[in-house]
Amino acid sequence: MFELKMVKGSTLQGVLEAILDLVNVANVDCSSEGFSLQALDTEHVVFLSLFFPSEAFQSYRCDEDRSMGIAIADMVDFLRSSNDGDIITIKATDQNLEDITITLESPDKIKTMAIDLRLVDATSQCLKIPDWNDMESDYQAIFCMPSEEFRLNCKSLSVIDDDVVISVNEEVISFSTKGESGCVNISHVMNKTDKPEKASVILTHARGPLSLTLNWRYMKSCAKVSKLFDQVKIGLSTKRPLMVECQIVEKGYIRYFVAPLKAEEGKTET
């Protein structure tokens, strides 16, 4: 049996809403540790990998590992009809491998709504991605920034053009774009003090200057998810896609991987 319980207002619904910008269905793998979800956008440019640990929920039970294709669009539609404070239960039994049941219960237990959602085939969403610990060393630069700053950057950059250059060296991280109507250049000086301020950008490591050019259209879902968290971690590499991560409690994460248009080592945009 698989069962999780949470109070509406938790991060899950917000995350699912943002995933809808990428896909309508996603594959969910459940284990006793928590559940993971993979989603690949229709253009195959963005890949999302998330892990919600069991600790993120009020209660969580998974007796046996199972994989389920979920119609995220239908699930979100149902969750939208609930009120804040409702208790959400998602349940799958060993007797019925074709459906999951989602129940919404008002805090005073007066009203209950339930839906049986038919499982779908979402195996096309699955990619084989290496463990982050094995991949991390391929990232020449990793830094953290307040997600509000990241979101504001996403907003101001999208005004001008789709192509955005992210450049990083040991001193500065910059986001820039230029188009017919002008240009935007945002730079953040890295905070290197022992006591970083809350609003600062903190460099985890950088091995020389590096710049990535991305089509910012593909960052829409990522910018939406970052709103739900305090911090985002961004990884740049010439061998790997751009990585943007938000941390869910201690062990969980949402990681976006976005294929860049261009990756250059040894130079930064001025």
Binding site: L40, E43, H44, V45, T123, L127, F257, A259, L261
Partner: peptide, 14 residues
């Protein structure tokens, strides 16, 4: 025009 690389250039199918 410019070709947008896909994520499958980086990660293979499971």
């Amino acid at each position: 025009g410019r070709k947008q690389p896909t994520i499958t250039n980086y990660f293979g199918r499971a």
